Simulated assay, not measured.
Amino acid sequence: MIDHLDHLVLTTRHEAACVRFYVQVLGMRLETFGEGRKAFVFGAQKINLHLAGREFEPKAQHPTPGALDLCLIASLPLEQVQAHLAQHGVEIECGPVLRTGAQGAIRSVYVRDPDLNLIEISEYLPQA
């Protein structure tokens, strides 16, 4: 019945810092739509941005900054991702570690965004 994820919603208390992180650090494209709403676009999906206390309706029952735990697949080798994060002063909290993604084995590093959401950045390992 379900084919793929189109978008998800991230709630932030720190709009400017959040935009900088997702656009400058993670390389997503900022899109403005509707009545000035913002989204981070990458691949064939996007992350809609809601400001805490000014969420768009309908919304989650308890929209909370810092409650997201998200895994993103990198378009670059993980070593290049780590170097890029270091250039932007982003501390790697954990990794690289081996995990299991939706399509097989992955190698991941974990960082925090400005709202302290856990962001896992991964690469798929070659199939044996």
Rank of each mutant, 00 (worst) to 15 (best):
A105H: 01
L68E: 02
L8V: 07
P96A: 06
L30E: 12
F21R: 05
H50T: 03
I73V: 14
H62Y: 10
M28S: 04
H7A: 00
P65D: 01
A105E: 15
E91N: 10
I121A: 04
Q103N: 14
R107H: 09
N117C: 04
R54Q: 15
S108M: 08
D6K: 09
R29D: 06
S122A: 15
P114M: 12
F56E: 12
R54N: 14
A105R: 09
L8A: 02
L116D: 15
E57S: 05
L49C: 07
P63Q: 01
L76A: 13
G66D: 05
L98S: 11
D69M: 02
E79T: 14
P126Y: 00
G34A: 10
E91Q: 12
Q127P: 01
T64H: 00
G36Q: 04
A60G: 07
P58F: 10
K38E: 08
R112S: 13
L49N: 05
H50Q: 07
G27E: 11
A67K: 06
R107M: 08
Y22P: 02
A102R: 14
L5A: 11
A60H: 02
T12A: 09
T32V: 13
G95R: 01
T32D: 03
Q61N: 10
Q61M: 08
P63W: 02
M1C: 09
L116N: 15
F56C: 04
L76W: 14
V109G: 08
A44L: 09
L98W: 02
Q24I: 12
R37C: 06
D3V: 11
I121T: 03
G104Y: 04
H62E: 11
T11Q: 07
G66V: 00
A52H: 13
E93V: 13
H4M: 11
L78S: 08
V111E: 07
A16W: 11
E31V: 05
L10M: 10
V109Q: 11
A86Q: 13
F56T: 12
T64E: 05
Q24S: 15
L49M: 10
E31N: 14
V111I: 13
V9D: 09
Q87Y: 06
K46A: 07
L85F: 06
L76K: 14
T64G: 03
A128E: 13
I47N: 00
G101R: 05
P65F: 01
I2Q: 07
A105N: 05
R54F: 05
F40E: 01
V23P: 00
L78C: 06
R112W: 06
H62A: 10
G53R: 00
T32E: 15
I2A: 15
A52S: 12
L116W: 10
D113G: 03
V23H: 05
H4S: 13
R37D: 14
V97M: 07
D115K: 03
L51S: 13
H84F: 03
R13Q: 13
G95M: 04
